[in-house]
Computed example of a mutant assay.
Amino acid sequence: MTVRDRCSVTSMSTGELIVVSGASTGIGAATARELASRGYHVLAGVRRDEDADAIRAARIEPVMLDITIGKHVEALASRIALDSKRRLLRAVINNAGIEINAPIEVLPLDTWRELFEVNLFGHIRVIQALLPALRQSRGRVVNISSVGAEATLPIYGAYAGSKAAFESASDALRREVAPQGIQVVIVQSGGVKTPMAAKSGPLSLKLAQGMNVEHTRLYGALISSTVTFQSSFLQRAMTAEQAAKKIRKITTTKRPRTRYGLGLDAAFTLPMARFLPARLMDRVVPG
């Protein structure tokens, strides 16, 4: 058994608390189950009673958590502070998110605001509320971002923009709280087979149907080709369960890196985005 393994075993024997937002389905649900199987008590954020019933299990406690609603976040903070067993909060995994993709000229500003409210501001609300508990435990923030924050496909501007902003905030947070013993880790997720990913392409095509004639002429083929590319790739993508195992390791390893790629596309896309000239990257990115 390695030193790293011993550290993980020691932590899991305590039954410490871990928060996972967006745990109704997909990566969040799989991560909650994976961590619970390792002995942690998971506070799994869901938004509907039926989702709570589906995720509830040994060491998985569903909590109503729409991260855009202040009262939900306040209730979560109180639940942790008043834990009957006085368990420490080991980690917060900020996974909740929405994805709506359309050309920048076409996507309404209200939809942009909705994306940023969930994918950025909601997570900041959770972080602000739970930092006192993480300070007490010298715990960890794990922020689930996207490959798109560095390598953005056409029509993904709003979603990728919200993730890029989340990464910049995460970098600042890491430097702010490191002296307090809190670690901040970014996970740049690529393609993963989840309900959100499966809905993304059809939703883009549906939005395209509402475009006017000029926008259809300008962007119709681009939307179609981008959706086709992503849908084809998702057939070969990792499962939510595979992603959850990697997130569990990232959450529990003693000395994590500041950033991790998640998935096959992350492995080859992120290095290209970082080292290729922008004009060359424009030719590489599908569109």
Rank of each mutant, 00 (worst) to 15 (best):
P277W: 07
S13V: 03
Q183C: 10
A133C: 08
L82W: 04
H123I: 03
N143W: 00
L218K: 14
A169L: 14
G261P: 00
R236W: 14
V92G: 00
A102C: 02
T253Y: 06
L203P: 02
E105C: 01
I100T: 14
G261L: 07
G157W: 07
L280A: 09
A23N: 09
A23Q: 07
A178P: 02
R236Y: 15
T111H: 09
E214A: 15
I67G: 05
A273H: 04
S11E: 15
P154S: 09
D83F: 04
L17W: 01
R125D: 09
S162M: 03
S231G: 15
A149N: 01
A273N: 01
V192L: 08
L131G: 01
Q183N: 05
K206E: 15
Q183G: 13
S78R: 14
V118S: 00
A158C: 10
V63E: 01
R138F: 03
D83R: 00
R255A: 13
V106M: 13
I247F: 09
R274E: 12
G210I: 11
V118G: 05
Y40H: 10
F268Q: 04
T194P: 05
N94H: 08
T226Q: 11
I18R: 01
A197K: 07
S189W: 04
R48H: 08
R279G: 08
D53W: 09
Q188W: 08
E176A: 09
G161M: 08
A267D: 01
E167W: 05
S232I: 11
L115Y: 03
L107E: 10
L280K: 07
R48Y: 01
D66A: 04
D83T: 02
K85H: 14
L262I: 11
R255K: 13
F166W: 10
T258L: 10
V63A: 00
P108C: 04
R113M: 06
E74M: 04
V9H: 03
A172Y: 03
V20S: 05
G39D: 13
V213L: 15
T226I: 14
G210F: 14
V106P: 00
R174V: 10
A32Y: 02
L173H: 07
S84T: 10
N119D: 11
V185T: 05
D110F: 08
A208Y: 02
A158W: 03
G210S: 12
Y40P: 00
D110N: 14
L264N: 07
K245M: 12
M272T: 06
G161C: 06
S11L: 15
A198E: 14
N143M: 03
V46L: 03
A221G: 12
D53I: 13
V20D: 13
T239V: 08
A208R: 14
L270K: 04
A151S: 07
L153D: 07
L270N: 00
L76W: 11
R33C: 04
A237Y: 02
F229Y: 10
A58M: 11
A81G: 03
G139M: 01
L234C: 05
A178H: 13
T68K: 02
M211G: 00
A244H: 12
R135W: 03
V106A: 06
L82G: 02
V141S: 11
L280D: 00
